[in-house]
């Protein structure tokens, strides 16, 4: 059971972890790097609470051996959060009361970020389609979908240099 060193980019920084074979990215993030925004729900691919971006595409860190992301670019909620204040998605989630326990929120936020990267002006259908793999057990999806709509508008307006 020899451990190996795996290096990858995490939120713009080069990180290295020493791992046993097939340690999941989820476990490396949470248990070794202390990046605990990425949650551990089912470890079955069924809940989306562990969603991270690998090279800007959403993936489930519970199903991903960390060896598979060697040399790749990983983005988690920690790196989305600005040093001061909140990311427009975080602000919109807060304003829309889009979380109660908050367990699904990091995964929802990362997926929403990926959606807005692909499609800056998604309609309701695009949002619900994108979210089908992310489960919220307490808030309900209405506020979450609304928060993403509001964030999309805010980010769009921001890009066009208009006041929010």
């Amino acid at each position: 059971m020899a451990s190996t060193i795996v290096a990858f980019e995490l939120g713009g920084r080069e990180v290295e972890v020493m791992v046993k074979p097939m340690t999941t990215l989820q476990s490396a993030l949470r248990d070794q790097l202390g990046f605990t925004a990425t949650k551990e729900g089912c470890r079955q691919g069924g809940c989306g609470s562990c969603t991270v971006l690998v090279n800007d595409e959403p993936m489930l860190s519970c199903l991903l051996p960390v060896e598979d992301v060697a040399g790749q670019r990983v983005t988690t909620l920690e790196s989305l959060t600005p040093t001061q204040g909140l990311h427009p998605l975080q602000q919109a989630f807060l304003d829309a009361n889009a979380f109660q326990c908050g367990y699904c929120t990091p995964g929802m936020t990362m997926l929403a970020q990926a959606l807005l990267d692909h499609n800056p002006a998604p309609d309701r259908g695009d949002i619900t389609q994108a979210l089908t793999g992310n489960i919220c057990r307490c808030t309900g999806y209405g506020p979450i979908v609304r928060a993403i709509e509001v964030a999309a508008q805010a980010m769009h307006a921001g890009e066009e240099g208009q006041p929010r």
Partner: peptide, 24 residues
């Protein structure tokens, strides 16, 4: 390959392979 079938079984201890080959 993608691990979306194999990994849940490994995470749950239902599948206990000694060695694994990833195709990514």
């Amino acid at each position: 390959a993608g691990g979306t079938v194999a990994m849940p079984l490994i995470n749950d201890g239902i599948s206990l392979p000694g060695a694994v080959m990833g195709l990514r």
